[in-house]
Every structure is written in C-alpha cells, then in structure tokens.
Design a protein around this nucleic acid. Structure first.
Length: 494
DNA sequence: TTTTGAGTTGTTCGA
DNA sequence: GTCGAACAACTCAAA
C-alpha cells in the first residue's frame, strides 16, 4: 500500500466513536492510505453542554484504551487541545493530509460545530467525508407517511421494524497504515480530564471504559441477563440490565454491533421467553434512536419544554431541596438510594431514574432542567438526546410524555420493584437492619423497630422532606393552574 | 378532509 | 386482597 504518498494521508476525527470496530470513517481512510486518528479536546466548541465531570473521567480512560488498541496495530492516537477547526487545519497542514473523515452525529451542538469545521476545511482545500454509523438509522430515514418525523414512540418503533434491519457492522480495518511522520500530540494527562480530588474510586470499581470493556459487558449481558431481561430490567437490586449506555454514548461499541449480537444470539435460542426478552431490549435501542431523532428535529429541547404550556409552569426555587435531592437526603429511601448510586458510580438504574426524576419535578416542584443539569454532570452515560428526552418525559412536557397526573409513589414503587429492599440497603447501609416491611418508609415503622435497627430518624437517616400525599396534591394543583393560565393566554390570542 | 384509535414505565379510590 | 374506573384532554398517525 502506498502509505508514504502524501496525498493519501487521511485524518480520522474521532469524537464519540472511540472504537476501531464498525468504524466506517476509519475503514474508508485505511483503504485510502495512511491514517492519522485524531481526538481534539475542545469543550468550548460544545456550547452549553461541554462534558460533565463523570463524562470527562470516562473520556480519559476511553482515550487511553483506544490509544493502546491503536498502538497494538502500529498506529496511535493524536491528541490536541485546540479549537476543532483550527486543530484539524493545523494537522492537515502538518501531515499533508488531503482529507478528513468522521462519523456524523446529530445533536444540535455537535452539528453546528461540525458545519463550521467542514466549511473551514473545504476552504483550506481539504476534502471532508462524513459517515453514518453512530446510530442505527439517521434521523431523516424514519418518517411517517406524510414524510414528517414521528412524535410518538410506538408508531416510530413500528416504522423502524418495518424497515430492513440495520446494516451489518463493518469489520475493523485489517491494517492501519502509518504516515511517514507522526504529528505532534498532547499527552492525555495534559487534557486534565481526571478530577483534581480523586472522587472516582466508585467509578473505577464499577466500570471498564473502552472497547474491550464494552465487548465484555455485552457478552456478559447476553450470557447471563438477556433471557430474563423483560422482567428483571425493572428491578434495580438485580443485574438485569446491560449497562451498555456509557459504552454506547462514547461509541466504544456500535449500536449495529449490539443489535446484531442480540439478534444472532437469539437465533440460536428459539422460544417465546427469549423472543420477548430480545424484543424488550431492542426496543430500548430504538428509544435511543428516537431520542436522537427528536433532538435533531427540535434542537431547542435541552432548554425548552416541547409542550409550550410548561413555559408558564410555577416551578419553585428551593436551593435546599435541590441539594437534599442531589445528595440523597430526601428521606425517601428509594430516591436517596438512586441518587447515591449515581454519585458513587456515575450511573443510575433506569427505573430509579424515573422515580428520582419524578420526585424532583413533582414532589419538590423543581424544574426538570435542574435535574437534567445534575445528571449531565454526574452520569458517565450523560447523553444530550437521551438525558433531555428522559427528563421531558418525566416532567410530562415531552412530545410523547407521561401524563402529568402520573406521579410516582416512591414507597409503592419500592415495594413493587425492590420488595426485599436489596437495592436500598446496598446504597443506604444505615437502613440495612430495618425489616423489609419498613425499608421503603422508615418513618412509618414503630419506634421500637427503628430502635432495634439502630435508626434514629433525623440523625442516622433524614425525615421525609415532603409528605407524599400533600406533595402529590400540590403537584396536581400546580398542573391545573398551569393549564388554566395556558387556556387564558390561548383565549387572549384569539 | 374527516374520522378513529391509540399513546413505555402509575396511583388512588371504591366496590 | 383484587379489580376496574377515574384521572385530561390532546395530538398523532393512518385509514
């Protein structure tokens, strides 16, 4: 291969696709000649949503993993700390690269950046090619019979299934031809992605960032959890879910790889239970697609509610309540367990996200954007599309949202999905001696039971900061007030 | 154009 | 303890 011919050098700009498997940009570049894989750390290019603290921790380790994977194949990762546009132009000049390849992504922040970069490169006479591969479908591929994007999940889901199944994943390039000279690169440490005070022990214990960790996670899930997924996925005390979300967010594994791995696995195991489990899981992958599509069509969603009536919602401003929620001190064990799991591991079980989210928005009447911000900073899988859509759904203001009157009861949810209190005890050990019967509502336990479990409310564990019944009534009243106000405004307009 | 059926994940109340 | 209905209306999607 004429790898030393200058005109054949291609920069592959890696962003949230930190893998070499099923990497169309990398594959195409390798076929063209020498390849320079590049990562540019430019948080200021990401507008209001630069990666949060937990995401930066993940990113650091993911980049390290990618670099060693590349080195094992005679290549390496070039890292820059610059604006994306000037960084790529600089590198193109330094390496004599005639082209830059990357994989398309679809959130408004990234898109705006990519457009600027593309124009800048073309002006400099550098060829640009963007590839599909970050999602199963591109946002414009799935539209209704009127050619408009879907707003409701179920028809969207059915439309996806009606399409031909997602493309098979591409192989990793067989070789990654090196350029004659490698360009200058930062040391990974210079990006200062890791926290200055090391709070990441819980993250280290819970995760293995990188493609290898992702592949292992997928194998474990297929082997041990997929069969029971349909039911177990709702019980946070069990290992019933895939935990692939951060790996998917950073593109360490491709959604097509996951999709087909699940399908291939199921093909060898016929039977109704497996089929139901497989459907339930693939449905979740389609939710991810749906979120990307929604954000693509409504770029304002991270800040503004889909349902405009909610712009007039009487949110409260209560710093103390927000802190209590963030720190897992609401006095509702399931909510607090979730918030502590998040703080410790950078991740929270999906069912608990709904319950904790609902609690912030409905019991505390704090704006969903405040919850979205906290999650953004603390989740290792923080993803603008998924996070935004999830919060809008919980708040009841999304395009396809839960009805507002659906207020999760943390006690009832606990009894239903964490009946033995295993999840609560794991994250709130101070309650672990409490009998199952009271684990989700310690305030209702007889004084003697509490004493025997070594729990004094207000000292070892907080009293509930709001009363469920009163808070629920308050939330429904606030919703009614908002609807009245919106109705009035509507009348005025006419 | 109009009509019809339906919409991820819940709670509470009363029979 | 279990069951069905009410909770709200609205808009989407397709026929």
């Amino acid at each position: 291969m004429p790898a030393d011919k200058k005109s054949d050098v291609t920069l592959v700009w890696l962003r949230r696709d930190l893998r070499i498997d099923d990497q169309p940009a990398l594959l195409a570049a390798a076929e063209r000649g020498a390849v320079v894989p590049v990562f540019i750390w430019a948080p200021e290019d990401e507008g209001d949503w630069p990666p949060g603290a937990a995401s930066r921790w993940w990113l650091h380790h993911s980049l390290a993993a990618l670099d060693s994977e590349l080195r094992a194949r005679g290549s390496r990762l070039t890292i820059l700390r610059m604006q994306s546009k000037s960084g790529l132009r600089y590198l193109a000049k330094q390496t004599g690269a005639s082209a830059v390849f990357w994989m398309r992504s679809y959130d408004p922040v990234t898109q705006a950046r990519d457009d600027r970069v593309e124009i800048g490169l073309r002006i400099a006479g550098v060829q640009v090619r963007c590839f599909k591969g970050a999602s199963l479908y591109e946002p414009w591929e799935v539209v209704n019979k009127q050619g408009r994007p879907y707003r409701v999940f179920t028809p969207y889901y059915r439309a996806c299934l009606a399409l031909s199944s997602p493309d098979r994943p591409l192989p990793a390039p067989r070789t990654l031809p090196a350029p004659t000279n490698w360009p200058d690169s930062c040391e990974l440490e210079q990006l200062e992605l890791l926290p200055k005070i090391d709070w990441a022990a819980g993250l280290r214990a819970a995760w293995s960032p990188g493609a290898e960790g992702a592949a292992k996670r997928l194998d474990d899930f297929l082997e041990h959890a997929l069969a029971g997924y349909a039911e177990a996925r709702d019980r946070p005390g069990e290992d019933g879910v895939s935990r692939l979300s951060p790996h998917l967010h950073f593109g360490e594994i491709s959604p097509r790889r996951v999709w087909h791995a699940v399908c291939d696995f199921l093909a060898t195991r016929p039977g109704r239970a497996h089929r139901a489990a497989g459907e339930a899981f693939l449905r979740q992958l389609i939710w991810r697609e749906f979120a990307y599509q929604q954000l693509f069509d409504f770029p304002g969603a991270p800040a503004e509610p889909f349902d405009e009536r909610f712009a007039a919602f009487p949110w409260r401003d209560d710093e103390q309540a927000l802190r209590a929620w963030q720190q897992g001190r609401t006095g509702y064990p399931l909510v607090d367990a979730g918030m502590r799991e998040l703080w410790t591991t950078g991740w929270m079980h999906n069912r608990v996200r709904m319950i904790a989210g609902s609690f912030l928005v409905k019991h505390l009447l704090l704006p969903w954007q405040a919850g979205a911000r906290w999650f953004w900073d603390t989740l290792v899988d923080a993803d603008l599309a998924n996070n935004t859509l999830g919060w809008q759904w919980v708040a009841g203001c999304g395009a396809d949202a839960a009805p507002y009157f659906r207020v999760f009861n943390p006690v009832a949810q606990g009894r239903r999905f964490d009946a033995d209190g295993r999840y609560v005890c794991r994250w709130i050990p101070e309650l672990s001696k409490l009998p199952d019967r009271w684990i989700h509502e310690p305030w209702a336990a007889p004084a003697e039971t509490l004493a025997r479990a070594g729990v004094e409310l207000g000292r070892d564990y907080p009293e509930p900061i709001v009363d469920h019944v009163a808070a629920r009534a308050r939330a429904l009243a606030a919703f009614a007030a908002m609807r009245r106000a919106a109705g009035k405004r509507e009348k005025k307009r006419k």
